[in-house]
Design a protein around this nucleic acid. Structure first.
Length: 376
RNA sequence: GGGAGCGUUCCCGAGUGGCCAAAGGGGGCAGACUGUAAAUCUGUUGUCAGUGACUUCGGUGGUUCGAAUCCACCCGCUCCCA
């Protein structure tokens, strides 16, 4: 269930209710692919950084440890100690990212597992059954995330198949809901829009999937090589065709600037590995821009990463200490950096929500955008 | 006292006459990262000068058209036998 609280131009302030609680939007979902946030963060740490929704991955949890085990242990929430909302990605992104290890057919995708090479078949029914067993709150449709650039004819055929797959996902979830044996009976399915950078295909596909009247819709297949401007123009093309009373999720995006730009174009949900991955590599986000904590200039810098940041790392540690931890290869370096970056993202979303509520969003983005992209 | 080795660019370590400013690691410096096969990957790391020049392989001298590579002596270190 999704409720719009307020809006400013196209930017929306909303509230999404799930079986494990309410999500205030716009929101950034923190990515824990294998039921863990890389960088040694626990579910408790997720609370500390202000995470509302955790995201895990169907393909990866299916490969290891397997959804049967997780179901047997009470479902994903119980397994990883997270009692708030969880969204599971369907494995559709792995169709893209593991392109060298899979073959696509009408019924689904055959993978050679990246761990040991064994054959794994995943189609719409399999993906939904796995997500059902995991017991996430929001299950994503099994789609083909198309590489960019891709020929028009290929994209056209692919979105038609993704639509057929979506209908099968929907049927499968309805079937599973008739069974007694459930972890999370309130799980919902969200559809995913594809179409590469072809506006007409994007719109055509969006119209097709909107017909299924699902409780949420995502835009997928962006931020895979095209320019930011191209991505924004795709959002602008598709957005008018997305049901306005349902949450919109821009998958896998992005930089702080990408997020603000997308919120201004009507997006409510985001997720991205960037804050966590970049943190592990020493790349930190601050209110004054980005910085690489490994740089020599921070060797004796007594200041916190971001003096405007309220995270537990910034309230206690210096840049010099963080740099030392990275140089020494201590895993604490990654942990502290990830805590900071995720806190930064979650707190940016809080600021965005407040700005929309108070009618200040346009001024907020004008002020923030130039700062966030520069070198701190 | 006798015998056998070794000394390479920040470190370790290859190289035993030209294709060597010198492999490969490490370390350093910098860059990338967008529904995570990523604690990963890429570039760079003698000096100066934009296709080149100069200095360098413990030291000094020598052989040679040409030496990190061969010879002599010296300095330092290691191991074995007394």
């Amino acid at each position: 269930m999704f409720e719009l609280i307020s809006r400013q131009n196209n930017a929306r302030r909303g509230r999404c209710t799930t079986p494990h609680g309410v999500v205030e939007t716009p929101v950034f979902m923190n990515v824990g692919t294998q039921a863990a946030i890389k960088g040694a963060l626990s579910a408790d740490d997720l609370k500390t950084v202000g995470c509302q929704v955790e995201l895990s991955n169907t393909y990866h949890l299916h490969v290891r440890p397997g959804e049967r085990l997780i179901k047997q242990l009470g479902g994903l929430h119980s397994f990883m100690g997270w009692d708030a909302p969880i969204l599971t990605d369907s494995g559709g992104f792995q169709v893209f990212s593991l392109a060298g290890l899979r073959k696509i057919r009408e019924d689904g995708v055959r993978f050679n597992a990246h761990t040991d090479g064994r054959q794994i078949f995943m189609g719409p029914e399999e993906s939904i059954s796995i997500q059902w067993a995991l017991g996430s709150d929001i299950a994503m449709a099994f789609d083909e995330c198309i590489e960019n650039p891709a020929p028009y004819e290929y994209v056209s055929a692919s979105i038609a198949r993704t639509t057929r797959w979506l209908r099968r996902c929907d049927e499968q979830l309805k079937l599973l809901k008739t069974q007694e044996d459930t972890i999370n009976p309130g799980q919902v399915l969200w559809g995913i829009n594809q179409g590469g950078t072809y506006h007409d295909l994007r719109i055509e596909h969006m119209k097709q999937i909107a017909d299924l009247d699902l409780p949420g819709y995502a835009i997928g297949g962006l931020a895979v090589g095209e320019s930011a401007e191209e991505m924004y123009s795709v959002i602008e093309a598709v957005e008018p065709h997305m049901p306005s009373d349902r949450p919109r999720y821009l998958m896998g995006v992005g930089t702080p600037a990408n997020i603000i730009e997308a919120v201004s174009r009507g997006i409510d949900f985001f997720d991205c590995v960037m804050p966590a991955r970049n943190a592990r590599h020493g790349h930190l986000f601050t209110s004054a821009g980005v910085l690489n904590i490994n740089n020599l200039k921070y060797r004796d810098d007594e200041r916190p990463i971001d003096s405007a940041c309220a995270c537990p790392v910034c309230s206690k540690y210096s840049r010099a200490y963080l740099r030392h931890l990275f140089k020494a290869g201590e895993m604490l370096a990654m942990r502290l950096a990830v805590i900071h970056n995720l806190h930064f993202y979650n707190s940016l979303m809080q600021d965005i929500r407040t700005a929309i509520e108070t009618g200040q969003f346009d001024a907020f983005s004008r002020k923030k955008l130039p700062l966030l992209s520069q070198r701190a």
